[in-house]
Each structure stands twice: as C-alpha cells, then as structure tokens.
Design a protein around this nucleic acid. Structure first.
Lengths: 225, 225
DNA sequence: GCAAAAGTGTTTGGGATACACCCATGC
DNA sequence: GCATGGGTGTATCCCAAACACTTTTGC
C-alpha cells in the first residue's frame, strides 16, 4: 500500500437518483446536459468529487448547483446506493461514480443552471451514460426498502390519508394492494397515529388524516409485503 | 461537469472482507501491516485502485498479491458492500475505499507477502483504519443476506449434512435454531437435494449428504428467518 | 338522489413456533 | 449396553389472502 508517484486514481464522481411522487407516479429528477458528451441527453444530476470532500458533501454541492435542489432540506431520506466503476462508462475516461438515492415530497428545483425536470420512472427519455441502469437499480432498492422499513414517510406530507399512503405504495411497488388488508396491516404496525383533522376532498366522505410517529428510518417488526 | 486542470480526485482504494467458517466460527481474513501507518496492526487486505481498472479487478490483483487468495477460484461468492469515504479515515490523506464482501470454504492463503491469518469475528485483534466498522457492516449484511437468499452455499463444501448446514447458519447469525423446524423449513424451500452418500463421523448414526441444486445466488420464495 | 371516495369484518389456509423421543453406529 | 449425534411429527397460533357492502359528503 505504498503511494508511489506513479499512482493515478480514476476520476471520482457522484450521481443522485432523486425520487418523488407526482400525480400518483414515481418520478426521478433529471437534467438536460448542456455539453458533450451526451449533449442534449438527459442525465442524473452529478459531478466531480474532490479530495477533502465526502461524496455526500460533493453531492449536496452539485445537486444544489446544477439542479437547484437542497439535499438537506428538500429530501427526507438519502442513502448511498452503489458504486459504478466500469472503465468504459464515461467516454472521456475512467470515472468511478458513487451513487445515492434520495426521496422527498413536493420538491421544486429552483435556480439550477441547466434544464431540470422530473420524469415518470415508467416513461424516461433517452439517458446519458449508464444512468438508465442506475435508475433501475435505485428503483429496485427502493421497492425492497419499502417492504422492510418505514421509508414511505419520505414521500408523504406530514399529514396524509390512508388512501394517499396506499397510493404511494402502489406507485412505487407498481402493483395494486387490497384496501382492507393494507389498512389492517399498516395500522397494526403501530407506525402512524390518527390526528383530529380530516381532509375534505370534494363530493365524498372526508378522510381522517394520520401522521408518522417517527419520521426517521426504522425497520419493521414484520416485513411489509 | 467540466474537467478543469485543477480537479484532483481523492485516492481510490479497495478493501476485502473475506469470510469463511473455521471450527464452527465465522472468521475474517486479515493481514498484519508491515509499514506505517498502523505498522503491526491487523487490517483487511486492500490497496490502491488505478485508472483503467475496475475496483473488482483491483481487488483480485491486490488480494492475490498481498494475501495469497485467488478471488475467482477460492471464493464462491463476492459482492460490493459499501464505499467508505470520510476524509480522516486514512491519516496519510483522503482515501475513498470501495469495499467488497467475499465468502468461501477451506480457503488457504498461499504466497501472500505479509502475515496473513483468519480471525474469529467475535474475537478480532486491534484493527487499522475504520476496518472494525467495515467488518461489522459486512457481518450485518451477511446476516441479512442469509435470510432472503441461498448465500449459505458459499460457506459449505459441495456435499454436506443438514447439521453442518444448520451449524453454518448458527455461526453466522450467532444464535441457535430449532433442529426440527430448521430441517422442515429448509427442505421445503427446495434448494437442496439428497445424495446417495452418507457421512460417517464416529460412534453415532451416519448422516445423509445433501447438495445445492444451484450453486449461484438466488432469492428465496419465503424469506428464511 | 346520485356520484364518489372513505371506511369496515370474517373466513380460510399456510407457515412459524414450540416441544421430546427413537434410531443407527462405534466402541 | 452405552454414548453420540442423526433423524422425525403434532398441536397451536398468528398472519396473509380473498372478498363486498355501508357511510358520508357535495352537488
């Protein structure tokens, strides 16, 4: 483990897969690349990570700068995903990318440099680099996290109805759940509490609003699905 | 994502957590550091990853060279674990480490440069860097992998008894399992098949030998534990 | 009164858990 | 014949899955 003058590391980059629900669909944040390579293609927000900076700090700086999203305040959950390192993944040279997955609710990009938009995961544009793979990997991880943790809280407002909760699960898992079984199961987990408020939403019975007891990641006593 | 001349990446390293069972205990491969920093301490086998080489290729080269273990042939399973990147983890300067977990059976290090030995996970020597954390993280991941995949195959010989299988689970999960329930459950998963052979092991009834149907990683239909 | 979403129970089957004794062998 | 580990069955409980109607509101 000697550091000889000859050692040259690859470039180290970070990329963020930022999810949120929009109109009942899981969406991911992309930016349109202003320069070559892949000029005009859409890509995950990402960039170089420098010496002396953790990859998460790099990510926060870059996502703020390029996409106008404040990781600390706009995201309710973030975790490291995987490190992608094939030699050919960047045409400019070997770049190793440490990727993160973040989740939030009503994220509004503000002041990013490039064109920034959320796209439904089921309907993505043509993507730069190996970013389609990275998004697929993040989606799988998210689906599995939903089943054994309370991570769904990251996608919901502070107060929400049981239908909104179920819709969030269905959008991310991409399949339908039985309403009665879902409610029975979720309430029995003891993660949420009824509030005194109701949501009135038009010509139908108003819905009780619930809140999470603890808006931080925990494992479930019984795995969810 | 401009590459200016000023950009300087951190050092990129790889480290391997290589597990195997010895005498009914989960052991991890360590090497005694010949040089500063942490001279004389034990550490995970690891080293620099260079431009143009995937981290897994770097790992194979380094583990072979330093610990005398052939990743391709001696390990039956390997996966990327996590990327550790705090700035202060290496006293010589910022080093980002991509870590891997590998598992095998009857691994005999041969021709490594440094002192190389397996240590029981429950009784580790004083470790260099943040390697105690990395091992703890790997052990947790392994425990959880055992419950939803067939990864236990990586720790067993081609033919094994049900008691050996159960002992492997108990050593890694670090708790006892009920013999009758374990056998019923595991056989019902359909992962293993009885062979015609028996293991004779002394003054007691010989045990049937089983083999895995598929010695590659699969998810279990029903999670194990 | 009617359209729209909220809310609510029961039955059934399968698997998890708990638990104790007989079997085949070597000496 | 006895010590050693191998091998086996049943009863109970809990939970997952399947499934349809009543309630409350706005218009």
């Amino acid at each position: 483990m000697q550091y000889t003058g000859e050692y040259k590391p690859p470039i180290l980059t970070v990329d963020a897969v930022i999810f949120q629900l929009i109109g009942g669909e899981l969406n991911v944040l992309l930016i349109e690349r202003p320069d070559e390579p892949f000029k005009g293609s859409w890509a995950l927000p990402g960039g170089y990570s420098s010496e002396g900076e953790t990859t998460l700090n790099s990510l926060e700086r870059i996502v703020q700068q390029k996409a106008g999203v404040d990781v600390e305040n706009d995201l309710r959950y973030i975790e490291q995903l995987y490190t992608f390192d094939t030699v050919a993944r960047d045409p400019r040279g070997h770049a190793v990318s440490v990727t993160y997955m973040g989740c939030g609710q009503e994220i509004v990009p503000e002041g990013g440099r490039a064109h920034t938009a959320f796209f439904p995961v089921g309907n993505l544009p043509s993507l730069a680099y190996d970013h389609a793979n990275i998004i697929a990997y993040a989606h799988e991880r998210l689906q599995s996290k939903l089943t054994y943790t309370n991570s769904i809280y990251a996608f919901l407002p502070a107060k929400f109805t049981l239908t909104e909760l179920q819709d969030a699960y269905e959008a991310i898992l991409m399949r339908e759940l039985d309403k009665r079984n879902f409610r029975k199961k979720f309430l029995s987990l003891g993660l949420i509490t009824e509030t005194a408020e109701m949501r009135k939403g038009g010509a139908h019975r108003p819905a009780k609003l619930y809140k999470f007891n603890s808006p931080t990641l925990e494992s479930l006593s019984r795995s969810f699905d």
